[in-house]
């Protein structure tokens, strides 16, 4: 059995739970709780969201949604092995916590471990191209800091096609040696 993991990491409201729900073949296991503070939504993830995609009888991809805040880094430990890909979700409209993102990339070391890494910008349907270019420059600067060459893509986690396209990107990066 070949089992690989896709770690989906992002801050509150970035769309991790929704994205897994759009991609998973099983009813995702969600560990959501009612938020005690105003974070713009009623429920938020307090642990790992889990989903799964079977590729064949002996191959599967596990989808693990993990909070991006450093205080949850003990959960990062649980998903760091056998990674097929690292997907970092950034919510447009809120200034990303770059210090957190820095710690996350330091922890997972996708550049040293040759793990395909993709940054997905969500909630950006109404953003102007100039605003997205600016956000892209900010994110690329932190990727450069980690000597990481990775795409910044625009994604709608509610849309299955958009969510699945991220798998296509990660697979293209992983398979780009073999063609």
């Amino acid at each position: 059995m070949v089992y690989r993991k896709l770690a989906i990491i992002g801050e509150v409201g970035a769309g991790k739970t929704r994205l897994i729900s759009s991609m998973s073949e099983i009813q995702p296991f969600e560990t959501e709780a009612e938020s005690s503070i105003d974070i713009g939504k009623k429920y938020t993830t307090v642990g790992i969201d889990y989903g799964r995609i079977s590729l064949s009888e002996d191959s599967a991809l596990g989808l693990y949604g993990v909070p991006g805040q450093e205080r949850y880094s003990f959960l990062w430990e649980l998903v760091k092995e056998s990674l097929w890909g690292l997907l970092v979700l950034v919510k447009y409209g809120e200034e990303p916590n770059y210090q957190n993102l820095n710690k996350l990339l330091t922890f997972f070391e996708p550049q040293n471990k040759e793990v395909a890494c993709v940054v997905g910008v969500t909630h950006c349907e109404n953003a102007s191209d100039q605003d997205l270019t600016a956000l892209n420059s900010e994110i690329q600067a932190i990727l450069e800091h980690h000597k990481l060459v990775a795409p910044v893509l625009y994604v709608d986690p509610r849309n299955k096609e958009s969510a699945t396209s991220l798998l296509h990107v990660i697979n293209s990066i992983n398979g780009s040696f073999s063609a």
């Binding site: 191209d129 270019t133 060459v149 795409p151 910044v152 625009y154 396209s165 398979g175 780009s176």
Partner: peptide, 27 residues
């Protein structure tokens, strides 16, 4: 070879472009 992935506000985020970028950023 590509030094970085493109800004996808300037080029279409299509499967063809993605596959090309994946190849050229790797080697």
């Amino acid at each position: 070879m590509l030094l970085a992935w493109p800004d996808f506000t300037l080029v279409k985020q299509s499967p063809t472009v993605i596959e090309l970028c994946a190849k050229l950023t790797k080697a």
